[in-house]
Amino acid sequence: TYETAKAAGLPLELLNFNVELETAGGHTRAARLSLDSLAIGKLVERSVPALVVPRGQMKTNLLGMSFLDRLESWEVRADQLRLRGYP
C-alpha cells in the first residue's frame, strides 16, 4: 500500500502511477519499483519487483508472484500460507 511504502521510507515523490490494474475493488493505477530486499521470517529475497497503489486505494498489502515465484515452493492450507525457500 501507499501507506506501507511511505512508512518504509520509499521515495514516493518519484513514483509514476502509470501501470493499470484490475483488482477485486475495481480499476486503479500503480507505480512500478524494485525493493532492495523483502524479508518474511527467515526468507530474504533481493531486488524484488513491486507495485505501489495511490494513497487509500488498498487496505492491506498483497504478496505477489514476483516474490512467490522465487521460492522453492509455497502452498495454502486452510488459514495458512506455507513458504519454503531454497537452501
Rank of each mutant, 00 (worst) to 15 (best):
L51Q: 05
Q57L: 14
S34I: 07
R55Q: 15
L38E: 03
V44F: 07
G56Q: 02
M58C: 11
S47R: 12
A30P: 05
G56S: 08
K42N: 12
R55W: 13
A24S: 09
L51A: 03
A31Q: 07
L43D: 03
L51E: 01
L35H: 04
Q57T: 15
A39P: 08
G25A: 14
K59D: 01
K42H: 14
Q57G: 10
H27L: 12
A24D: 07
L33E: 02
L51K: 04
L33I: 00
R46P: 09
V53T: 10
V52E: 06
L35P: 04
V53A: 03
S37F: 06
L35Q: 02
L33R: 00
K42I: 15
P54A: 07
A39H: 12
A31S: 10
L33F: 02
M58L: 15
K42M: 13
T28V: 03
R55N: 11
A50E: 04
A50L: 04
L35R: 02
M58F: 06
V52L: 11
S34V: 12
D36T: 15
D36Y: 05
R55A: 10
V48L: 12
H27R: 15
V53E: 05
A39L: 10
Q57D: 12
A39F: 02
R46G: 13
L35M: 09
R32A: 09
L35Y: 07
R32F: 14
L43F: 14
A24G: 15
H27S: 14
V52Y: 11
A39C: 15
T28F: 01
V53G: 04
G56C: 10
E45M: 15
V52D: 14
V48C: 15
L33S: 00
V48M: 09
L33P: 01
T28N: 04
P49M: 08
L43W: 00
L51H: 02
L38N: 03
L43C: 06
S47M: 12
A50G: 13
A30C: 06
A31I: 08
L33A: 00
S47G: 08
I40T: 02
L33N: 00
I40K: 03
G25E: 10
A24V: 09
D36H: 10
D36A: 13
G26T: 04
G41C: 06
A30K: 01
A31R: 13
S47I: 06
R29K: 08
G26C: 03
L38D: 02
R32N: 09
P49Y: 05
P54R: 00
K59S: 03
R55Y: 11
K59G: 10
I40V: 13
G56D: 02
D36S: 09
E45Y: 14
K59T: 03
S34G: 01
L38S: 03
R46F: 15
S37T: 03
Q57A: 15
R32D: 13
S47N: 15
L43M: 05
M58R: 11
Q57F: 08
L35G: 05
R32P: 11
A31H: 12
G56M: 02
L51S: 01
E45I: 11
G26A: 04
R29T: 12
T28I: 04
S37Y: 07
I40L: 04
L51N: 00
V53R: 02
